[in-house]
């Protein structure tokens, strides 16, 4: 089942993993092989966004991505978010606006918003940004506080 060893860069650190099955999802590699459980397991079908990570600074659903497909790529999880000044700004915006309740979707939102801000020009509209956050679900906040966090992060982005 396994396809030899897998090399990944995770949060700036090179990791080499043996015995990773070819069908293993990145989500499981991160959570159970590397112990990075800030990335949350939600629906596992790409429908909730709780497992969002960055792959080469692009927002990616780790429940749908196969670990082996990402060999050699650079993965950032919530545990490594502060290394990126933009990521730190976004995380801090969620914290300061209290844009969370149960907190289960929060790491996914922080990663998704970081990825979206990284790929967009400063001039692109706030409404478009919010539209692109539509793949991340939150059941507690009604999104109002998340919109406030997104506005703050966009305003303060480095």
């Amino acid at each position: 089942m396994s396809d030899g060893s897998l090399r990944l860069s995770v949060n700036g650190r090179e990791v080499v993993l043996d015995g990773v099955p070819s069908d293993e999802r990145l989500l499981d590699t991160l959570r159970w092989r590397l112990g990075l459980r800030g990335t949350k397991e939600g629906c596992r079908t790409g429908g909730c966004g709780a497992c969002t990570v960055l792959v080469d600074r692009q927002s990616t659903l780790s429940c749908l991505a196969l670990a082996h497909e990402l060999a050699g790529r650079s993965v950032t999880t919530i545990e490594g978010i502060d290394v990126d000044p933009l990521g730190r700004t976004v995380r801090s915006a969620f914290e300061r606006t209290g844009a969370l309740q149960c907190g289960y979707c929060t790491p996914g939102f922080v990663m998704a918003l970081t990825g979206l801000l990284a790929e967009r020009e400063r001039a692109s509209s706030f409404d478009e940004l919010l539209e692109d956050l539509g793949g991340n679900l939150c059941r507690c906040t009604g999104y109002a506080a998340i919109v406030r966090a997104a506005a703050l992060a966009r305003q303060e982005r480095p």
């Binding site: 990335t39 999880t77 545990e79 995380r91 801090s92 914290e95 209290g98 969370l100 907190g103 790491p107």
Partner: peptide
Amino acid sequence: VAPPRPDAALKAAG
């Protein structure tokens, strides 16, 4: 900005 909840830092950092 309202003062953050006591669990905000922990949860935002995963």
